[in-house]
Design a binder for these strands. Structure first.
Length: 152
DNA sequence: GCCAACGTTGGC
DNA sequence: GCCAACGTTGGC
């Protein structure tokens, strides 16, 4: 059974257009440094899970693309890169702390903005809409996926 | 730039 | 294990 996810990206770092322009429209989801979000990628994501690509920390936050999980988990290379903003001196190669998956964007969609998401009562329970939510990756219920994407 | 909310760190 | 201080996220 497929799972569904909402994954936040700052468009100033990796926008949906950047992802589409990448080879196979696929990007490695680097830079997650939150254990719960990591655990979702490492323990619960499967290839072909659905992904809502969300732009955060920008002028118009919202869902801008539909994609899929395109790899099994593997170590985030940026944790070992001393020049990277995401370098983690505490992570050892033999025992990497941070794992990620590849995400393939299948379709860019017109931005469904935060206010638009909030205006839809059937989406009110989405975790991303909860007050104080900061998790960059959240599970999405099938009914919410269907309400946004159409038939699964 | 502000600030609420939340996660992490570290002293005890 | 508690919890205050601090750092980060992310909308506005």
């Amino acid at each position: 059974m497929k799972n569904y996810w909402l994954m936040k990206s700052e468009p100033s770092e990796v926008s949906v257009d950047d992802a589409i322009a990448a080879p196979k429209s696929t990007v490695a989801w680097t830079g997650v440094r939150n254990y719960q979000a990591r655990n979702y990628m490492r323990d619960l994501m499967r290839v072909d899970d659905g992904v809502l690509f969300y732009h955060s920390s920008c002028a118009e936050p919202g869902i801008v693309g539909i994609g899929r999980v395109a790899s099994t988990p593997y170590p985030d290379p940026t944790q070992f890169d001393k020049k990277s903003h995401y370098y983690d001196a505490g992570s050892k190669k033999e025992e990497p702390r941070w794992q990620l998956v590849d995400v393939q964007v299948l379709k860019k969609i017109p931005n469904i903005t935060l206010p638009e998401l909030r205006a839809r009562p059937e989406l009110a329970a989405m975790l991303v809409l909860k007050k104080g939510n900061r998790l960059s990756i959240t599970p999405v219920e099938p009914k919410h996926w269907k309400a946004i994407v159409g038939k699964s």
